[in-house]
Design a protein around this nucleic acid. Sequence first.
DNA 1: CCGGTAGTTTGCGCTGGCGCAAAGTCGGGT
DNA 2: ACCCGACTTTGCGCCAGCGCAAACTACCGG
Lengths: 233, 233
Amino acid sequence: MAGLDPSLIAGLPTFAGLERKDLEILLSHAQAMRFAAGSSVFEQEEEARNFFVLLDGHIRVVRTTPDGQQVIVRYISEGELFGIAAALGRTTYPASAIAVADCVALAWSNAQWPELSARFPSLGANTYKTVGNRLQDAHTRVIEMSTEQVEQRVAHALLRLVKQTGRQTDDGIEIDFPITRQDIAEMTGATLHTVSRLLSAWEESGIVKGGRKRVVVRNPHQLMLKAESRNKN
Amino acid sequence: MAGLDPSLIAGLPTFAGLERKDLEILLSHAQAMRFAAGSSVFEQEEEARNFFVLLDGHIRVVRTTPDGQQVIVRYISEGELFGIAAALGRTTYPASAIAVADCVALAWSNAQWPELSARFPSLGANTYKTVGNRLQDAHTRVIEMSTEQVEQRVAHALLRLVKQTGRQTDDGIEIDFPITRQDIAEMTGATLHTVSRLLSAWEESGIVKGGRKRVVVRNPHQLMLKAESRNKN
DNA sequence: CCGGTAGTTTGCGCTGGCGCAAAGTCGGGT
DNA sequence: ACCCGACTTTGCGCCAGCGCAAACTACCGG
């Protein structure tokens, strides 16, 4: 259906639980979708109609508070399941998803969820695991926000991004999609200004290298030190 | 098995999805456990052997950071499913659970999870929903921590506790288990001292009434005002 | 009834990081 | 080639809330 390009299917490590044949059946129910960088995949409060697997690109998940404040919940990279609100008993998406690079995703209608999850138990297992990881991450973030200084939180955020999407360059490890200082601020509960100051200071000491919508980590080890103690380094 | 007291079974609203007969089968696989106030139900990092439903009492879930800081993840009240780490693909509990009042819980061995969840789809649905709610809560907390002042966070925490476990008294609504200023601090990422000061100020204006390990909310509406704007009231 | 411990309150000084302001700088579109 | 909007940097003053310190008080066990 929808003429799935077979080449898209090649790399889906997350679905290793499924046998080749089952995978093909599952994929035959999916629809491929493309999103240009900057476009919206779904909006907060919108009725949850689909669940997705991201095949290529990067998506930012943002939650907006009643008074207009924005917080970045997380970034989604290739192979990840997302938009599974309906499976978790919600009728609307709790956050907005925005493509930060050109994206390709597979989408299934939520109406198919009961049938598909019954037919492919490993889809269910995968969902449990995904949600478990997210819950863990969310709690980790609460702890960080509760106990750490801004400098440590920013360092942790960068390390997480590097680990998740880092691409080795001759300069160091680069975060593989455009990200602004403001974005980092919204991930860490700091202000744009403070983040900018921190990155400037780190650039001074050769730990990172900045650019317009770019961050390259030159010295991950030193960055870990910043992340770990509230002492001066 | 384990001679379940039938009276315990009476009130299990959370499991409404199950028919009476199925419920009995499910319960026949469970083991009843009692925990005295202050005792540990399970420890962080301990191998996850069981999952539970709390029948009576209150349990505090605490996560400890590598450097010894503690953060209260949440409180569990009657009817809630907990300790489901294994179902989410983990082998150890990510946090400790401590009874803050005398507790009665039903426990199932994790080994039974695949069988039970296959046999009773509504158990699985229930788990998805529970996890969905928790994920939602965790994200809400991240947002609060990111965007709110300490005063608002403490107000929100109290309102949540009151909503979850409030007991009407002639003085106002009382939180139904012993809770210290330190506990509130660990829920909100503030210090004991700041929390104490805030509660003193609120007691001054008649919004709450404090006591040793006790908090009574006399004026929830005013407390909501404190929770909502960073303006002076 | 009494001593000890766990919990609470309050004072004081300091500072991390925010709010506000303004001046760069990069890059994409016409 | 230029302009405009988006992104970034930096300076400065202020204050919420923390760290430290000390006193107070309610409960519990003996």
